[in-house]
């Protein structure tokens, strides 16, 4: 018993030590974001600012248009998430509940393309977007991302589990195919859709390389791109950099705390990296 308690104690100690290391960068970020310039450079480091400098956030927003970036990020995230959910729902329904010629081939081709990393598509997609005249526009930020083979695959698996009799019942009750999908399948697949949606929100919010190359003007930057540019614009004012970083990170942390059940189970089930 003593041995058991001892090993439990060691386990807690190890886990707690690891947890502190995991949290430290966030704590340090928030702490720095609220310091005065002199406290930032203090050695040994000051953990709790003597006076909380909330105005750092305001200053950062004045140096670079973070409000604008924030709105852009929200627009891009919301629209690409809604778009992806819609295309995914429709395609997953076709793949799971409709039998049609060529279904197997189309599905196999799509699955095959999942092996190709997105980085490889970067250059031709850039050319396509510029040929479409979409460079430096919301279209470029949103439209290439409103369909995902992985999400279709995931939702299709979920749709398979809905019994056929339910679709019969719905037809008899006066549903067309589309109404059945909308009023029965979609509500039933809510957990899967929430997971898909959340992973998309996280991915979309944090996306960097694509928004970096398709936007030129400040007005269209998303938060990560704006933040990256800010490192040059703000110089070495770490309290402002940390305030800006906090503005980028915090919304996702809040979302995670609210919806962590869906996010963690989604990751565990799908093994996808955001």
């Amino acid at each position: 018993m003593v041995k058991d308690a001892l090993s439990k104690g060691i386990i807690y100690l190890l886990l707690a030590f690891g947890a502190i290391l995991m949290l430290l960068p966030f704590v340090w970020m928030i702490s720095t974001s609220l310091k005065s310039p002199s406290e930032v450079m203090a050695m040994p480091p000051v953990w709790i600012p003597s006076e909380w400098q909330w105005e750092n956030y305001q200053t950062a927003s004045e140096v670079a248009p973070f409000g604008r970036y924030f709105i852009n990020s929200i627009i891009v995230t919301i629209l690409s998430t809604i778009g992806e959910l819609l295309t995914t729902i429709l395609a997953a329904y076709a793949f799971s509940k409709i039998n049609f010629y060529g279904k197997g081939i189309v599905f196999a081709v799509l699955l095959g393309t999942m092996m190709v990393p997105g980085e490889v598509l970067l250059i031709p997609n850039f050319v396509t977007v510029s040929n479409l005249g979409w460079l430096d526009s919301y279209e470029a930020l949103i439209i290439p991302w409103i369909a995902s083979i992985f999400s279709i695959f995931l939702l299709r698996q979920y749709f398979f589990s809905v019994p056929t009799e339910l679709s019969y019942a719905a037809k008899v009750d006066g549903c067309s195919d589309f109404k059945f999908l909308w009023y029965v399948m979609v509500p039933l697949a809510k957990p899967a859709l929430i997971t898909i949606g959340l992973l998309k929100v996280i991915g979309s919010w944090n996306a960097f390389l694509w928004p970096l190359i398709v936007t030129n003007s400040q007005e269209l930057r998303t938060l990560p791109v704006g933040l990256s540019a800010f490192t040059t614009e703000a110089g070495i004012k770490y309290e402002l950099l940390m305030a800006a970083s906090t503005m980028v990170i915090l919304p996702m942390l809040i979302l995670f705390f609210i919806m962590q059940k869906y996010i963690i189970s989604g990751v565990a089930r799908t093994g996808i990296k955001g």
Partner: peptide, 20 residues
């Protein structure tokens, strides 16, 4: 089509909408 025939149907496994 079934949805236009004005029929009511009861299934072996009831086929109730579980979310409603």
């Amino acid at each position: 089509d079934a949805e236009k025939r004005g029929i009511g149907m009861v299934f072996q496994n009831y086929a109730l909408y579980p979310h409603l």
